[in-house]
């Protein structure tokens, strides 16, 4: 999924499920390297978590609003609120662990 300044409100902030946004830029090699992992995770978590990318150069407004200073930056939103923020390249395992933890804590909330 590609997020933009225009669809951010609708697709991210108002999303009924958690959203992972990877902020990236074309001049950032670590961003290029996590790209295939992001694509894989997007398919795998479809329906449980929305996963996508946002180019900070093309969409400067959102990047500025969330004070994105280093790339890649990963932010997970639930109901428009930030529940996770991580900077720098991550391995697939690391990303998976973060996603699973967030999803597990959500399940708990539902049970309570």
């Amino acid at each position: 999924m590609i997020f933009t300044d225009k669809n951010f409100q609708e697709e991210v902030l108002k999303s009924p499920i958690p959203v992972l946004v990877e902020f990236w830029a074309s001049w950032c090699p670590p961003c290029k390297m996590v790209e295939p992992i992001i694509d894989r995770l997007e398919k795998e978590y479809m329906g449980r978590m929305k996963i996508g990318k946002m180019n900070v150069d093309i969409n400067p407004v959102t990047a500025k609003r969330y004070n994105v200073k280093g790339l890649p930056t990963f932010i997970i939103f639930i109901n428009g609120k930030i529940v996770y923020r991580g900077v720098a390249a991550k391995t697939e395992n690391e990303l998976r662990r973060v996603i699973e933890e967030i999803l597990a804590s959500q399940d708990e909330e539902v049970r309570v």
């Binding site: 090699p29 991550k90 391995t91």
Partner: peptide, 17 residues
């Protein structure tokens, strides 16, 4: 991104280096 540096019991992605 899946290349990892292991040192001192800790782990880093080398992705993009």
């Amino acid at each position: 991104a899946d290349a990892v540096l292991l040192w001192n019991g800790r782990e880093w992605s080398l992705g993009g280096e």
